Simulated assay, not measured.
Amino acid sequence: MSITTGTWTLDAAHSDVDFVVRHAGISKVRGSFQTVEGTLQLAEDFTASSVEVTVDVASVNTKNEGRDEHLRGTDFFDVAQHPTMTFRSTQVRGSADEFTVVGELTLHGVTRTVELAAELGGQDVDVFGTTRVGFEATGEISRKDFGLTWNAATEAGGLMVSDKVKLEIGAAFVLPQDEQQA
């Protein structure tokens, strides 16, 4: 599939930055970040493309306000000291249809290399004449790698929060009007 090169802007209203973590060893808790911005640079040589994303960590939403407040506090994200999470790609491997994005994820003041498996959802022009492109990406991180170590033991001896966190990202980008006419 052919995609338009240029600088694209993340369409936050049509994008999701979600996570899944095992809770008490028996179920999964899903959450998302509501405030996110980013830029995608699509190059002629797709592997030379890059992406930068900034997430407002205080915008975490797990559908439970008490849990969200705990996540915003010093036991987890400590949003007063670390208000954002960022991802900056350093390498793209593969083709536009299916690829791996390698980048530096900074969370809780710690930066680690993360790999995301990704695929192109497609490119189209919407009913308003805006050119859009969409991607899906998944990955997994260790909370401990980012200094997020809070936990509590369950009665059965398990842990309340798993170390492994799955990332699920659905990103839509728009091409600014001045680039659409170039």
Score class of each variant (00 low, 15 high):
Thr5Met: 05
Thr5Ser: 13
Trp8Glu: 01
Thr9His: 09
Ser15Phe: 01
Val21Thr: 03
Ala24Gly: 13
Lys28Gly: 11
Gly31Val: 03
Gly31Glu: 06
Phe33Gly: 00
Phe33Asp: 00
Thr35Cys: 10
Val36Gly: 00
Val36Thr: 02
Thr39Arg: 01
Gln41Glu: 14
Ala43Arg: 12
Ala43Thr: 11
Asp45Trp: 10
Thr47Trp: 05
Ser49Trp: 01
Ala58His: 10
Gly66Val: 04
Glu69Leu: 12
Gly73Lys: 11
Gln81Tyr: 03
Pro83Thr: 09
Ser95Tyr: 11
Glu98Lys: 06
Val101Ser: 12
Glu104Ile: 06
Leu107Thr: 14
His108Gly: 03
His108Arg: 03
Gly109Tyr: 02
Thr111Asp: 08
Thr111Ile: 04
Arg112Phe: 04
Thr113Asp: 10
Glu115Pro: 08
Glu115Met: 10
Leu120Tyr: 08
Asp124Met: 14
Thr130Lys: 11
Thr131Cys: 06
Thr131Phe: 07
Phe135Asn: 09
Glu136Thr: 12
Thr138Glu: 02
Asp145Thr: 12
Phe146Arg: 11
Gly147Ile: 04
Leu148Tyr: 11
Asn151Thr: 06
Thr154Phe: 02
Thr154Ser: 07
Glu155Gln: 15
Gly158Arg: 09
Met160Ala: 15
Asp163Glu: 07
Ile169Cys: 04
Pro176Phe: 00
Gln177His: 12
Gln177Ile: 13
